[in-house]
Design a protein around this nucleic acid. Structure first.
Length: 428
DNA sequence: TCTGGGGTCCTAGGACCC
DNA sequence: TCTGGGGTCCTAGGACCC
């Protein structure tokens, strides 16, 4: 048996743990830049606030109903997430962290699952303050459906099996894990609208309509496991991008934003002990502003050698940006992807073992490894914070005390209660 | 005025090899 | 007049997830 443990309204619940007066008050949490709603309390859902709706569209409703609004506080949510997982680990041998608020648990051969699930649930609530629901099923896909049902039960625990007719007959196909908007539309066009109908469709037809991917989902729904437990794999790509707080026109400003995203991405890569083989830079105008000219482009290529050196990656990124930047557009977003990540030490080294060679004008330029510089940068950041040091191009952020035009909007940020001493709650 | 960010997997098609 | 077959690797694009 597989269990899916899912935190209820996770980001909203995190905000409530440290601000109990928000109980029973509708609250929403916003995406970066205070753009869209990405989490809602039950009260906010009841007001009809949809997932993903832009903030500006519900401004009036928020005022009218006294909805409390929060900017996203990922430092807090990330820390709360690892607390929840550490409680779950005490109960079970095998756990797969699927996302910031969901974990799969392997319950094969474990007895008394209902009691165990309830105990797990109440312990997580007691020790972390976060309410969770537990879905039980023979496959991950069934456990997902069960979790859906569990959320609506006072007990917070539910089991769905392949022949739970009542669980499947009213479930729309697009609520099955792995079936999104496009596949659901294709299925509806051949008369399949519910999970039960989908389950009872022949495997051959499913394959014809949705390929092997959908066939696996179909098998899982019928109780045959296709998705096994996965151990955490090193990432293959790292992406860092942000929409700008305001539109940006100057190359210098885009460079400055890109440079700060490159630093972020490289730090993440180094923390995982990886090196990148390639890089991609992309640049977008505002797709919603249809009255102004649109321009979207990207440029990618291999790095001169697999590297996790900040300056090498930053220079390459800037070269790609210059290639695609066009004057006369109002830009909304820039981003960088580090591609083809591999564990450090396994990469194909250049011919000269202790130096990095690069051909230029027919001669080999020898660059000394910059490992010590990279280490020094990391140490400064760990001691003095992310703002303490940055690449020259990124320094505009603090020029003359003004925020850079591209910096994020974040107007309703809660304290980082669990990760910063100065944000610790004081109990009278 | 105001619309997020970060991932994975699969497939088709092109380049290239013998 | 007549021009093969089988394979790999890479990339772009499309689908999905939270």
């Amino acid at each position: 048996m597989i269990a899916l443990v899912d935190c209820n309204n996770f980001y909203a619940s995190c905000e409530r743990v440290f601000s109990p007066k928000l109980d029973r008050i509708p609250i929403v949490v916003l995406s970066n830049n205070d753009g869209c709603v990405v989490a809602r309390s039950n009260e906010a859902k009841a007001l009809g606030i949809a997932m993903g709706v832009p903030l500006f569209k519900i401004k009036a409703l928020i005022k009218e109903e006294g909805v409390r609004v929060f900017s996203s506080n990922y430092e807090l949510y990330g820390d709360m997430s690892s607390r929840v997982v550490s409680v779950l680990r005490r109960f079970v041998p095998e756990i797969e962290i699927y996302s910031i608020d969901e974990s799969f648990i392997n319950f094969d051969g474990v007895p008394n699952l209902n009691e165990l699930s309830s105990e797990m649930r109440s312990t997580v609530k007691k020790w972390t303050g976060i309410p969770v629901s537990v879905g039980l099923g023979d496959t991950k896909t069934l456990a997902k459906i069960a979790n859906h049902k569990a959320k609506k039960k006072p007990s917070g625990v539910h089991r769905t099996s392949a022949d739970s007719i009542e669980d499947l007959e009213h479930l729309p196909v697009d609520e099955i894990w792995g079936i999104g908007a496009k596949l659901a539309r294709r299925l509806r066009s051949i008369g399949i609208t519910t999970a039960l109908q989908f389950k009872n469709t022949s495997a051959a037809l499913v394959r014809k309509v949705g390929g092997v991917v959908m066939e696996r989902t179909h098998q899982e729904l019928n109780g045959f496991r296709c998705f096994e437990f996965e151990q955490p794999q090193p990432r293959q790509n790292i992406c860092c991008s942000r929409s700008f707080g305001r539109r940006v026109e100057k190359l210098q400003d885009v460079e400055s934003a890109l440079s700060s995203y490159v630093s972020k991405a490289v730090r993440k890569m180094r923390a995982e002990g990886s090196v990148a083989n390639g890089i991609q830079v992309f640049l977008n105008t505002d797709r919603f502003n249809t009255s102004s000219p649109q321009y979207n482009n990207s440029s990618s290529g291999r790095l001169p050698y697999p590297s996790s050196d900040l300056l090498t990656v930053a220079n390459e990124a800037n070269r790609h940006l210059k290639r695609i930047f066009r004057k006369g557009y109002s830009y909304k977003k820039v981003g960088v992807l580090l591609l083809g990540l591999a564990p450090e030490g396994q990469q194909q080294l250049p011919l000269f073992a202790n130096s990095i060679g690069r051909k230029k004008n027919g001669r080999i330029q020898i660059k000394v490894r910059r490992e010590r510089l990279n280490e020094a940068i990391e140490e400064i950041i760990s001691k003095l914070g992310k703002e303490a040091i940055s690449l020259g191009r990124a320094s505009l952020k603090r020029n003359g005390g003004h925020r850079a035009p591209w910096s994020l909007k974040s107007e309703n940020l809660s304290p980082k209660y669990t990760t910063r001493w100065e944000d610790l709650l004081i109990v009278k």
